[in-house]
């Protein structure tokens, strides 16, 4: 299980679900100047950024993954969160996504100069998403939409690696108990395994970030416990990779994160030799 090769011929599938409801305008993690919507936007832009770089090869980019980004909340509807030339699209190859950001900023980044010091470099930093926050939180409907996309994907890729759905939210669903729809989503899959649902919980509560827990002990509120319950267990490869990346993941770890930026989750899938010393 969860051993199918991911390649251009057998691509993987990521579906990101973004909570764009009004409650995401509230402060993040006890902060006075940062909203949950800002944190979500940073996370999704970094995830797409990292995924694009991971798939870059030589002069081009290999379509190891197809990606959908679905927003829920704006006008209490569930729809593609892409803007600009990608508006309205759901699953697209990573190359199409990488080549169509909303805009590309120049940012100064400090890099190792190889001699123990730092050197400033200007790097291109693309952005695909802006912060949005309006309407309710139709999380159950978002899972249904994800299930529709997954169903199409697995019909076309029955032997491929199982789809991965990553839900980024403050957890306060307004269209009923999302657990049954999450379970229905998790019941779909390929011959290689069931769909994996990971949850990234952005809370207004202050508190230490929690990554990949193996139980709901220590989770601060009912929303985090509910999201933990919905989250799939990591595969043995993912647990091993998470440890290599310095994350604290043990046996039974689930794909759940509280108030953290889990941008390394993109590294949890194997697309070939990854140097241990790659930064």
């Amino acid at each position: 299980m969860y051993s199918a090769e991911i390649s251009r011929k057998n691509p993987g599938c990521f579906i990101f679900l973004l909570d764009q409801s009004a409650s995401m305008e509230d402060p993040f993690g006890g902060s006075s100047d940062r909203r949950k919507a800002d944190e979500l936007t940073t996370i999704i832009n970094k995830l797409i950024h990292n995924l694009s770089i991971r798939c870059a090869k030589g002069d081009s980019i290999y379509d190891y993954f197809h990606v959908a980004v679905i927003g829920y909340g704006q006008d209490t509807v569930v729809k593609s969160a892409f803007d600009g030339p990608l508006t309205g699209k759901d699953l697209i190859p990573i190359s199409e996504l990488a080549n169509n950001p909303l805009r590309i900023e120049d940012r100064v980044k400090k890099s190792d100069d190889g001699a123990g010091g730092l050197v400033e470099q200007t790097v291109k930093f693309p952005l695909w998403f802006e912060a949005k926050h309006a309407g309710g939180t139709p999380m159950s409907s978002a899972f249904k939409t994800a299930a529709d996309i997954v169903q199409r994907w697995v019909a076309e890729h029955p032997k491929g690696f199982a789809p991965i759905v990553i839900n980024i939210t403050d957890g306060e669903s307004t269209d009923g108990d999302p657990i049954p729809d999450a379970k229905a989503l998790g019941s779909l899959g390929t011959e290689d395994g069931a769909t994996l649902l990971f949850n990234i919980h952005l809370s207004s509560s202050a508190g230490n970030p929690i990554e990949l827990p193996a139980s709901d002990e220590g989770l601060p509120d009912k929303f985090s416990k509910q999201l933990y319950e919905m989250s799939s267990g990591l595969t043995p490869f993912m647990v091993a990779r998470a440890k290599e990346l310095g994350m604290s993941a043990g046996d039974g770890a689930r794909g759940f994160v509280f108030n953290a930026q889990p941008t390394q989750v993109i590294q949890f899938l194997d697309i070939g030799t990854r140097p241990a010393n790659l930064r």
Partner: peptide
């Protein structure tokens, strides 16, 4: 001297690796 799209340029910045 290659003209590279942003993702390829960033990947090059991280270097190549080999056993």
């Amino acid at each position: 001297n290659r003209s590279l799209p942003w993702y390829a340029a960033e990947k090059v910045r991280r270097g190549a690796y080999a056993a």
